[in-house]
Design a protein around this nucleic acid. Structure first.
Lengths: 332, 332
DNA sequence: GTTAATTTTGCAACCGGTTGCAAAAGACGG
DNA sequence: CCGTCTTTTGCAACCGGTTGCAAAATTAAC
């Protein structure tokens, strides 16, 4: 159906190699030849078949974009940034939705069938072992929003969730809260575990602070609301560090329904600083996660790995910062 | 790097064709041969190269998933549904972000280079001409959330936006509002235009209703809030039909800030019924758009077209319905 | 046990490109 | 104008598969 190299060659009256070379930059073609070929190509509406060429060059410019976070609005921004960033570099994202698939091998096999040049795992909940499966299969991989490890097996770009936990704890203590709780996201998520451990390691130094914790079963409004409604039934804490902004918003809604006020009766601090957090009717105090930088850096790392597949694995950690809005009582 | 057909053939001591046939269903292979080949393949960790086979079969199982809506949370759900639905049918979504690209030809060329089997345009703002460019290039295309036309040039799956406009108008009139406004999304979007025309065609029959209209410059919280703050300065209407839920939420926030109450002072009706609309702290009355059905139907249509590329174009229109929540005064 | 009908297998050409190599063409110097 | 060096071009093999066709192997029928 589509026009092939051969047809262009025939029309231009040159060899197939000549046509191939005009469309390969860096190849040796005279100006005269190039013009002749380009004319023929234009007349015929030819455009080279990227897949066929990948067969010999070994590069498809396809990059697997793998995620299981299709319910958290911040991931729409993540996808936006990734797709645009990859496109700008001539790479094509092959999107893989892991929602109902947890076996890394299946994804690895699939992406190898399509000869992707690399894979980006964009998820804060998948375990490090998942991305390792790609590396073991010889597929360059970057785990964005993944767990930081001091001896990373694969490239990781993200934040230090342990430090975020500490930061939240310090902030709450500084505001004078003395009965503090951790309301985490899914218990199995690495991000939840790390924030938990940072949070409580910091609070360990404060013997006068009463602590408690629980987990929501998803990073979602409903999960947050449900869990908070449960907590409100019996002796709630003075302030909660929530696993995520969207969870926090559910929590806020539960509190509002119960007739209590934020921040007067209960303080809330979230994490992510998603767009909604600054909506005037939410106005959530939260910890900012530098999504844009994480994505940009992930793409740069991916691009670097295409030229240097055995690059020594590194972890790139970006600092987070508190964004003060209206859901914690003020310092003074 | 990866294991090839030839290596498996050598190890199994059979011809390359034999190996190829064991991995092609419907091909003639004896049980004995199949076992021999499968053993060799397993030992070597072979998996066939989908791209190489596409060269001869003419099918890549790649489907372009094209959108420019990377800021509206409902599209995260749309992407979720599309990726899972396509995956379930063995198709692979190649994601194309059109945010900073408006020339259809560039996308068409790119997707042809990757020999996609088809393309899904998922956007309520792209003009019909955009998807037509794919059809003209011989790429099977479905425009999801696209403009309905009685003589569609390409397959369209979506809702009747004109009827939605009418529905909103009827609802507002029935609630006794007599000073009614249209607060649309981007003026250039086909969905905005259609809702506008339906809305005012219905109101044309009511001479006693005062009308007005304006447009937000994006389907976003900020745009809605900004526009509403402007409108509130001078003689606002009694009720607004907003182009979209996320716009409505921005509008609600502006109204709350101004000290007015919803629905007592101003009524709001949105469109989409996104997840957030039913959050207890938002509780938006809106028009439900059956996203799940639209996506499922789009995928079915896409799959059908793979077998029958010249299928006669059809429009599949799904009915919308009003979801009554708390932002319009009650009927009584 | 033969022979015919059927199934399985391998050969070789092909899909749409790329690329090493050697021949052809141009550029340069004298 | 000739010889040499450099650039451009075409040939042919290859990338990793598929497939029509005919030969080989089975199976069925007698």
């Amino acid at each position: 159906m589509a026009i092939t190299l051969k047809e262009v060659a025939e029309r231009a009256g040159v060899s197939r190699s000549a046509v191939s070379r005009t469309f390969t930059d860096g190849a040796s073609v005279s100006e005269k030849m190039r013009r002749k070929v380009e004319k023929a190509a234009r007349d015929l509406g030819y455009s080279p078949n990227a897949l066929a060429s990948s067969l010999t060059t070994g590069r498809t410019k396809l990059v697997g974009l793998i995620s299981n976070n299709f319910h958290n609005p911040i991931f729409l921004e993540v996808f936006d940034l990734f797709t645009r960033g990859l496109q700008d570099r001539g790479l094509r994202p092959l999107l893989v939705n892991l929602t109902d698939e947890t076996d890394p091998q299946a994804s690895v096999r699939m992406l190898r069938q399509y000869s992707v040049d690399g894979a980006v795992v964009a998820s804060s909940t998948l375990p490090p072992g998942f991305s390792k499966a790609f590396r073991d299969a010889g597929v360059p991989v970057v785990h964005s929003f993944g767990r930081y490890s001091s001896a990373p097996q694969v490239h990781v770009v993200g934040i230090d969730n342990v430090e975020c936990g500490r930061m939240a704890a310090r902030t709450l203590v500084a505001r004078g809260y003395r009965k503090i709780a951790f309301l985490g996201g899914p218990e199995g998520a690495t991000s939840t575990q790390d924030r938990y451990s940072g949070f409580f390691s910091e609070l360990g130094a404060h013997r006068d602070v009463k602590t408690s914790y629980s987990f929501a079963d998803a990073y979602s409004f409903d999960a947050g609301r449900r869990e908070m409604l449960r907590l409100l039934k019996s002796d709630p804490a003075e302030a909660y560090f929530c696993g995520d902004d969207v969870l926090s918003i559910g929590v806020l809604s539960a509190i509002a329904d119960s007739g209590l006020r934020v921040p007067e009766d209960i303080g809330i601090i979230g994490l992510n600083d998603m767009e909604m957090a600054r909506w005037e009717n939410i106005n959530l105090t939260t910890i900012h996660q530098p999504i844009r930088q994480i994505v940009t850096s992930s793409i740069e790392l991916m691009v670097a790995m295409l030229d240097e597949p055995d690059r020594y694995p590194e972890a790139r950690i970006f600092p987070c910062s508190i964004v003060e809005r209206g859901t914690l009582r003020s310092l003074s």
